[in-house]
Amino acid sequence: MSDDNKETAGSKGPREEGGPRERVIGTPSPARDKALLAEDDISAPAGSGEQLDEQSAKRAERVVALLFLLAFAASVAFIAYYIGWSGRDGGMHGIIRAQESNLWLGGTMAAAFLLMAAGVTLWVRRLMTSKPITQERHELVSDAETRAAFTQDFLEGAADSGITKRPLLRRTLLLAAAPLGLAPLVLLRDLGPLPEKRLRHTYWAAAVERAKKEGKKGVRLVVDGTHKPLKVSDFSTPGSMITVLPEGLEEHVDEHDVLTEVAKAVTILINVPSSEFKPAEGRENWHVNGIVAYSKVCTHVGCPAALYEQTTHHILCPCHQSTFDATDAAKVIFGPAARPLPQLPLSVEDGYIVATSDFPEPVGPSFWERG
Rank of each mutant, 00 (worst) to 15 (best):
Ser2His: 09
Thr8Lys: 15
Ser11Pro: 03
Lys12Gly: 15
Arg15Lys: 11
Gly19Ala: 14
Val24Ser: 07
Val24Cys: 06
Ile25Leu: 13
Ser29Ile: 03
Pro30Gln: 00
Pro30Leu: 04
Arg32Pro: 01
Leu37Ser: 08
Asp40Gly: 10
Asp40Lys: 12
Ile42Phe: 15
Leu52Glu: 09
Leu52Lys: 09
Arg59Gly: 10
Glu61Arg: 11
Arg62Gln: 12
Val63Gln: 08
Val63Gly: 01
Leu69Trp: 09
Phe72Val: 00
Val76Lys: 01
Ala77His: 02
Phe78Met: 05
Ala80His: 10
Ala80Glu: 11
Ser86Asn: 03
Arg88Asp: 12
Arg88Ile: 14
Ile95Gly: 03
Gln99His: 10
Gly106Ser: 13
Thr108Asn: 05
Thr108Gly: 02
Ala112Leu: 00
Leu115Thr: 04
Trp123Thr: 06
Val124Leu: 15
Val124Trp: 13
Arg125Phe: 10
Pro132Glu: 09
Ile133Val: 15
Gln135Ser: 10
Gln135Ile: 14
Leu140Gly: 13
Val141Lys: 13
Ser142Phe: 13
Phe150Arg: 14
Lys165Met: 07
Lys165Pro: 03
Arg171Ser: 08
Thr172Tyr: 06
Leu174Arg: 13
Pro179Asp: 07
Pro184Ser: 05
Leu185Asn: 02
Arg189Pro: 02
Leu191Lys: 14
Leu194Tyr: 12
Arg198Phe: 04
Leu199Gly: 09
Arg200Leu: 15
Ala206Tyr: 08
Arg210Leu: 04
Arg210Ile: 00
Lys213Gln: 15
Glu214Ala: 15
Val219Cys: 06
Leu221Glu: 08
Thr226Gln: 04
His227Lys: 13
Pro229Cys: 09
Ser236Thr: 11
Gly239Asp: 00
Val244Trp: 01
Pro246Asn: 02
Gly248Cys: 02
Gly248Leu: 01
Leu249Cys: 05
Leu249Asn: 03
Leu249Phe: 04
His252Arg: 14
Glu255Arg: 10
Glu255Ala: 10
His256Leu: 01
Glu261Gly: 00
Lys264Ser: 09
Val266Tyr: 00
Val266Ile: 13
Thr267Asn: 04
Pro273Arg: 00
Ser275Gly: 05
Glu276Ala: 13
Phe277Gly: 03
Glu281Ile: 09
Arg283Cys: 02
Arg283Met: 09
Glu284Val: 11
Asn285Gln: 14
Trp286Asp: 15
Asn289Pro: 02
Gly290Gln: 06
Gly290Met: 02
Ala293Ile: 04
Ala293His: 08
Val297Met: 14
Gln310Phe: 06
Thr311Val: 12
Thr312Pro: 07
Cys317Trp: 07
Ser322Cys: 08
Phe324Lys: 07
Asp328Lys: 13
Val332Glu: 03
Gly335Asp: 04
Ala337Trp: 01
Ala337Asn: 01
Gln343Leu: 07
Leu344Lys: 06
Pro345Arg: 06
Ser347Asn: 10
Ala355Lys: 04
Pro360Tyr: 03
Pro365Gln: 06
Phe367Arg: 09
Arg370Cys: 02
Gly371Tyr: 06
